[in-house]
Computed example of a mutant assay.
Amino acid sequence: MTRLLIVDDQVLIRAGLAALATAAPGFEVVGQAATGEEAVHLAGATCPDVILMDIRLPGISGITALECILAWASEPKPKVVMLTVFDLDEYVYAALKAGASGFLLKDTPPERLLAALALIAEGEMLFAPAVTRRLIQTFAHQPTTAREQPPALSDLTDRETDVLLLVGQGLTNEQIARSLVVTIATVKTHLNRVMSKLGLASRAQAVVIAYESGLISPGHTCHGYPVS
C-alpha cells in the first residue's frame, strides 16, 4: 500500500486527487495540505511514501517545502512528484536539483497519473513528455563552459557510468537492464553506488549531474537510446 500525501492550494484539485487515489487499489491518502508549511508538517507527521505537490504554493514555495521535507525526513525518504500547469514551469529545474522524483502536468489523465504514482513509489523517476522535451532544450542552450564535471565522476566504474548515462536519458531500471543485458537488481546496485559516490538524494538529481557535467548532451546516443 502506497501512502500518499497530496498538496495543492486549490481545494477542488486537492479533493479530486484525493478521491481519485482513495478509489484506486494500492493507495492510501494519509493527508492533504494547502500550503508548503502544512506539507512540511504533515510529511513529518504521516511519513508518506509519495508526496504529490503543486510546485507553486502560497507561503513557502513547493521547492522550499521539498527541500525541508527531504532534509528532515528519516530513511526511506518520501518520493516527491511536483505538479505544474505549464510544460516547463520556471521552477522545474530548481525542483529537480532539490530532489524531486518527477513532474506531472495538472491535466494528466487520471489513469496515467495513478500509473505514474505507482512507478514513482517503486523508485523510478517520471517526467511528463512535454516537460522532458523542454527540460532537455534548457540544457541544450547552456554554454558548454558552464558545465563542470564533478570530481567524483572519475570514481565511477565504466558500468556505473553506463548506468548514469541511461538514467540521464530517462530510462527505467527495466529498460537499462535490457540494454546492458543484466538483471534489474544489478542495475539498482550500480545506481545506488552512483548516487552514493556522487552524494545524490534522488534519481532525478542523477539526471541533472549527467547533463550539467557534460557527460551526456542532447542528441547523445548510448546503447541505442537517443536523447530527444
Rank of each mutant, 00 (worst) to 15 (best):
P48D: 00
T22Q: 14
V50M: 07
V7Y: 03
P78S: 09
L17C: 08
K77D: 03
T64D: 15
C68R: 15
K79R: 15
W72D: 13
G44N: 07
E67L: 04
W72R: 11
I63C: 13
R14L: 14
G36N: 01
V50L: 10
L42K: 07
A23W: 04
E28W: 07
C68K: 14
Q10F: 13
E37F: 08
V30H: 07
A24M: 08
I63P: 10
G62L: 05
G31N: 12
D49N: 13
V81G: 06
T46K: 07
T35H: 07
L66Y: 04
C68Q: 15
L5F: 03
H41I: 12
L12P: 01
E75P: 12
A33F: 07
T46W: 00
V50I: 13
A33L: 05
E67K: 13
P58D: 11
I63A: 14
P25C: 05
A39P: 00
P76G: 07
L70R: 04
A19V: 08
A39H: 00
W72L: 12
A23P: 02
L20P: 03
F27R: 07
R14N: 10
L20K: 05
C68Y: 09
E75W: 10
D54K: 00
A18I: 09
D49A: 04
Q10R: 06
K77F: 07
V40D: 01
P58M: 13
L70W: 03
P76M: 11
I13D: 04
T46H: 08
L66W: 05
C47N: 13
C68A: 15
V50T: 02
H41V: 14
A18E: 11
I13F: 12
D9K: 09
C68I: 00
V29A: 09
V40A: 08
E75A: 14
L57W: 02
P25N: 08
V7M: 09
G26S: 09
P76W: 13
I6P: 11
V11K: 13
G62Y: 01
D8A: 04
L17W: 00
V81W: 06
